[in-house]
Amino acid sequence: MYHFTALATLLAILVYFYSSILVSQARARFGVKPPAISGNADFERVFRAQMNTLEWLPIFLPSLWLFAIYIGDGTAAALGMVWVVGRILYVHGYAKAAAKRGPGFYVQAMATIVLWAGSIGVIVWRLVQR
């Protein structure tokens, strides 16, 4: 069973949900009425942080699960938690200023790259070893 990876997955989804709540709050705070997504730079940064999180989920989640299946639940979950922390740093950094989004982005991107590269590496290795 992959209990730790499942927990990391649920926390990643919670981060996305949290970023959605921040967008809703930013709409009210900055007076940006739906369906508008522009007009106030402070709102736009919060919105882009949410959308960027959504854009990374289809890269991160399959990589996380393939890593768990082919390498191990605990290591996958630990890398998943690194992604979660990176995303939280990214969302809060970007909300403050576009220049402050870098560290969180780097952390989550590195976690995703390790998950993806580890997964493809082991899968190819096992195919070659047949």
Score class of each variant (00 low, 15 high):
L22R: 15
K96F: 01
G72Q: 11
I37L: 08
P103V: 13
I69A: 10
A68P: 09
T5H: 00
F47V: 01
H3M: 12
L22M: 12
L57M: 15
W56R: 09
G121Q: 08
V85R: 03
K100T: 05
L64M: 13
S63R: 01
T53Q: 04
I120S: 09
L127A: 11
D73E: 12
L14A: 15
Q25F: 05
W65Q: 08
L10E: 06
S19A: 02
T5G: 07
V15T: 04
L7E: 01
T53C: 02
A109C: 07
V32Q: 02
W116H: 09
V32C: 03
I13C: 11
Y18N: 02
S19E: 06
E55A: 10
D42N: 03
I120Y: 03
P58N: 04
R27W: 08
L61V: 11
A78T: 13
A12L: 15
R101C: 00
F60Q: 10
I21F: 09
K96Q: 13
L7T: 14
W125Q: 14
L57E: 06
M81V: 02
A117T: 15
S20I: 04
A117N: 05
F67E: 06
A97R: 13
V128C: 05
L10N: 08
F47I: 01
F4Q: 15
Y16W: 11
L57A: 10
G118S: 03
K100G: 04
F47M: 02
S24H: 11
M110S: 12
A49L: 00
N40L: 00
V15H: 03
P62H: 07
A6M: 10
V128I: 14
R27C: 07
R126K: 15
F17V: 11
I59L: 15
T5D: 08
D73K: 07
W125D: 11
I113W: 14
Q108W: 07
L22A: 11
L11D: 07
A97Q: 12
S20V: 04
G31I: 06
A95C: 07
F47S: 02
F105H: 00
Y18G: 04
A77G: 04
